[in-house]
Write a protein that binds this DNA or RNA. Structure first.
Lengths: 162, 162
DNA sequence: TAATAAACGTTCACTAGGCTAACGTTAGTT
DNA sequence: AACTAACGTTAGCCTAGTGAACGTTTATTA
């Protein structure tokens, strides 16, 4: 109990870490997990402060970058399941960041497009996310950030198709 | 518990990615998440093939490295919540990899210690995990692996105390 | 010494994210 | 015309992470 280090500051029921096994300490999958969790928590905190989710950013980005799309297409672009896309678009549409209307050319589909308000929102979120990224990578030099991101990208490509 | 292993390639409802927004593509938190998920899936597949979980490895490692401990102490060492530790130790005890007995010196506690069978199991898991790590980091040179792990370690320390 | 607080093991329950299944509707294919 | 597949949608599942509460036991304090 002499250890003052605390994994996460507000946990009620998960006090200071004590001698984590060194075998675990350098385990890539564990490192990835822990970092992902913490990065996610950080991002979620910041984003929820403006009533946003990371998925909002993903969808708005996709619409802005690649233009209008059906929900299924958006799902493919972003990696968000189409079953989850429904509620997500409900939120975005309700706040007028996107418009959703039946596709006259294919009545199975909806056409989703970003609105002006959506573009404004996207800019806002982009700025926020830039800040989050800075906070996340604070201890790294620009070169190291590039390096880390490139390594993660390569890893990602490798795992995508193993 | 016996979970059908499922890779990215056999998803039933989430087909090929189409033009993921470049804004997202290099986003650290997203990269971390995706890699963590995939690495986890890989590890879980391999481990479940021998009826193990990553937590088993964590607990056995801790017992081997730092000696017997109470459940709460194990929880602190490994980062596993003590509410989850209960079932975990049930499994390990049932397979005779650990022994759990009331602590005579403090009757609130249990003393948990690793058995010989547990040590054998730990060796087995360690070998497996070595393989998993190799597969995970296949595209990287030894130097790059070091680099990646060190960067992740630094990131982890940063996020631990932000 | 008595009262109070804290730690322990345990059970229960909740949340978020990832994922599958199925259904009715519409479009393509044979 | 029959069959297959894509679409949007709803519902539900599983895992991982987390908090709450309870009865028991030890430590602290009044």
């Amino acid at each position: 109990m002499t250890n003052a280090a605390r994994t996460d500051s507000e946990h009620e029921d998960m006090p200071a870490a004590a001698a984590p096994p060194t075998r675990l300490h350098r385990l890539p999958s564990r490192l990835l997990n822990q970092n992902a969790n913490r990065a996610d928590r950080l991002a979620s905190e910041r984003l929820s402060a403006v009533g946003a989710h990371k998925w909002h950013y993903a969808v708005l980005s996709s619409l802005e970058e690649s233009g209008p799309a059906s929900q299924a297409e958006l799902s493919r672009r972003t990696g968000i399941y189409r079953s989850d896309m429904v509620a997500l678009l409900n939120e975005l549409a309700q706040q007028d960041y996107v418009q959703r209307a039946p596709d006259p050319d294919d009545r199975r589909r909806n056409v989703v497009l970003i609105t002006d308000a959506g573009r404004t929102r996207l800019d806002e979120l982009a700025r926020l996310i830039k800040q989050i990224e800075d906070e996340l990578l604070a201890p790294f030099s620009p070169a190291e950030r590039e390096l880390l991101i490139d390594l993660l990208l390569r890893l990602n490509e490798h795992l995508e198709t193993r």
